[in-house]
Computed example of a mutant assay.
Amino acid sequence: MNLAAVAAQLSDGWKGRVLADFGCVRMKLFKADAVGLAEEMHSDWDEAILMLEGELVLELDQVPMHLKAGDFHLIPRGVRHRILPGCRGSFILLDPEPLA
């Protein structure tokens, strides 16, 4: 599977696609939207972001972190985070969010 090609087919507006479930971890592909994402916090699990292409600004407890293609970052549980407006590109999100 070519992830860049799959991401290019995703609509705007933070519509993601679940690629796989590994035990209790879900692997999702997202195409970033310039609007950004509202702040959230997970008290029970960590998340990880792997940038495939483009760039975004991830804010962790109000501290901005610039991520670009190839960058990986672990978001620890209990840390408030959001994606600031103005981003573009695609990324993989790994999280053990309770599977429905």
Rank of each mutant, 00 (worst) to 15 (best):
F72G: 04
D71W: 01
S11Q: 12
R77P: 12
F72D: 00
L74H: 02
L58V: 03
F22I: 15
K15F: 14
K31A: 07
V35T: 09
K68P: 05
M65H: 15
L58P: 00
L99F: 14
C87D: 05
L10H: 04
D61R: 01
G13E: 00
S43F: 12
G16I: 04
L3S: 03
F91R: 01
G70H: 03
R80M: 10
A32K: 00
I75H: 01
L94Y: 05
L52F: 01
V35D: 09
E47H: 07
D71E: 03
G54H: 00
C87I: 03
A100E: 14
S43W: 09
W45D: 10
L94R: 03
R17V: 14
S43A: 14
P96K: 11
R17H: 14
M65T: 13
Q9K: 14
V6C: 10
M1C: 12
H42M: 08
L37F: 08
I83T: 08
R26S: 13
L74N: 10
P96G: 14
E39T: 10
A7S: 09
D46I: 08
M1F: 11
A34L: 06
C87S: 11
A48R: 04
R26P: 04
I75A: 02
D12G: 10
F30S: 01
M41T: 15
S90E: 00
L19K: 06
C24F: 15
D61V: 07
G13K: 02
F22N: 15
G36A: 00
E55K: 07
K68A: 12
D71T: 00
L3H: 04
A48N: 06
L94A: 04
H42W: 07
A100M: 09
P76F: 06
H81T: 06
K28H: 03
I83H: 06
R82P: 02
N2K: 06
E47I: 04
G13S: 07
